[in-house]
Amino acid sequence: MKFQYFPHTADIRMKVEGCCFKELFVAGVLGMANILKEDICEPEDSFDIKSNIEIQATDQTCLLIDFLSEVLSHSYSEKSIFCKVIFLKLTATDIKADIYGKTTIGFDEEIKAVTYHEAEVVNSGGNTWETFIIFDI
């Protein structure tokens, strides 16, 4: 599971990879958290907030983007950054998960939105999944 950032004229382009479908979502959460506040998810042993997310989407790409959008909304409304995901259900079009985070005062970067632009969740061989994600900054 990993995330990597690439240049974009005005925004942030991130590539996420997971060694399984579930890990792709974890990589997305950690990559986004790292933009909001660098290295906040290390160490990941102590969390002071928990939220629940339940989403249905038309396909796996929308599911990932909608899930990350929801995590982002919780970050702003609860002034927290989320680092850990416990999956209660995950299919290609449904997710139910508990997310765990750390409260924070301010962020390093303000993400306006997780966009669908360039996102295409694909199985890149074996059980590996990947996609690009553009964050509107």
Partner: peptide, 9 residues
């Protein structure tokens, strides 16, 4: 103008 996401900015 510059590249955006979907629509150009």
């Amino acid at each position: 103008v510059h590249e955006g996401y979907g629509f150009p900015i």
